[in-house]
Design a protein around this nucleic acid. Structure first.
Length: 367
DNA sequence: AATAGCATCAACCGCCAGGAG
DNA sequence: TCTCCTGGCGGTTGATGCTAT
């Protein structure tokens, strides 16, 4: 189990790809497409397994890949998405045109985790390290009980995700935790009057996602993050008070914002795990329930919401897009559609769909 | 100059879901 | 319904390059 049958075959090369191999694979896929990956190596004259060819293509040879270092904006977005999606690198990568899940995963493990820790944030929970340590101390006594809770948590997750029950999912999935995480930030902000640290400095980033905003085919992130003409988000600047954050945000509808923006101190965290634990925790994590005057009571509405959030969970940009288009960026009209070229011709169908969710981020600098 | 330690990244491994037969 | 095959994903590893001593 596990190992592909093709990998048992003899004479298959492993390790780094030579330029000749790259050329063969590139030529073959350019001419014929990849079709069935398992047949690609044979047709292309390569001594590799199909899986290896696929990986090489996706991570290196694909012409739409954006090479080079990640911009600050991209890093911010990855952190933001990670706080919502956890280690679902492919979904995170889908929101970063030209970047691969492997690349993002490497960046996270080698760089972003460290940066977050330096800023006093636990990269797993996105919670201040001090809180994580306190929680560990307090709850360390009841570890065995936690184990049971973990199992039920992962069960909840599986219902929503309708995905695998792999051990990594059960152990490392974060979104449920993030409901507490973001609340933790907000609490700290409210109490201390500072919103420092989250996202490596502050959190004054407003993400306006629209379905059809123009975005370059091979976008330079510093370009497409600035499309609205707003001042770029300065990661190194610090907000000095919560009121500063709120004041730069539209007052009308902040329902899609993370708790960091709309936390209500009186809310009880435990409420999140009632009848729709996952939905509520996500709603909570993104500030939906927090900002509403009451929790949805109508069962039908709840079902609809649940379906919606299930969808959002699989495509978080959809939520941001819908919310943004409804309230926050009415003045920002989509200019053009992202055509099928660029990413479109190269990416698998699912990737094309995800990539076509172009978005526009208006990042606010220090007030 | 040597080398130990660290950082980065490409590639592999193991697992799972879904489709085909 | 079952088995096999394949694509896809996330975790991990190992090679390589860089930096500090």
């Amino acid at each position: 189990m596990g190992r592909h049958s093709c990998c048992y075959k003899q004479k298959l090369r492993k390790g780094l790809w030579s330029p000749e191999e790259d050329e063969k694979l590139l030529n073959h896929i350019t001419k014929y497409g990849h079709g069935c990956w398992s047949s690609v190596p044979k047709q292309a004259g390569l001594q590799r397994c199909g899986k290896s060819c696929r990986l090489r293509w996706i991570n290196y040879l694909r012409p739409d890949l954006k090479r080079g270092t990640f911009s600050q904006e991209e890093e911010n977005l990855i952190i933001e998405l990670h706080s919502v999606l956890g280690n679902r690198w492919s979904q995170i990568a889908a929101q970063l045109p030209g970047r691969t899940d492997n690349e993002i995963k490497n960046l996270w493990n080698s760089c972003l985790k460290k940066k977050l820790r330096q800023k006093g944030i636990d990269p797993v929970t996105h919670k201040p390290l001090s809180e994580v340590e306190n929680v560990d101390e307090e709850e360390g006594k009841t570890r065995s009980q936690e184990k049971t809770a973990e199992i039920s948590e992962s069960d909840e997750l599986n219902i929503v995700r309708s995905e695998s029950t792999s051990k990594s999912d059960a152990v490392s999935y974060e979104p449920k935790q993030s409901s507490i995480v973001l609340k933790g930030y907000a609490t700290e902000m409210e109490v201390e009057g500072s919103c420092s640290n989250y996202l490596m400095g502050n959190y004054p980033i407003q993400m306006n996602y629209t379905s059809t905003d123009n975005i370059p085919n091979n976008p330079n992130s510093s370009h497409w993050f600035n499309q609205t003409g707003l001042k770029p988000f300065d990661m190194n600047s610090e907000f000095t008070s919560t009121s500063n954050i709120m004041s730069i945000l539209p007052q009308t509808n902040t329902s899609f914002l993370p708790n960091a923006f709309c936390y209500k101190p009186s809310e009880d965290v435990s409420m999140s795990s009632s009848s729709f634990p996952m939905k509520n925790s996500i709603l909570s994590s993104w500030g939906i329930t927090d900002c509403d005057t009451s929790i949805k009571e109508n069962q039908t509405e709840e079902e609809e919401e649940e379906a919606k959030w299930n969808e959002y969970l699989h495509n978080p940009m959809l939520m941001l897009q819908n919310q943004a288009s409804e309230s926050l960026c009415n003045e920002i009209k989509p200019d053009t559609n992202l055509g099928p070229d660029g990413l479109g011709d190269i990416l698998p169908h699912s990737k094309q769909q995800e990539s076509s969710q172009s978005y526009n981020i208006a990042a606010f600098g220090q007030v």
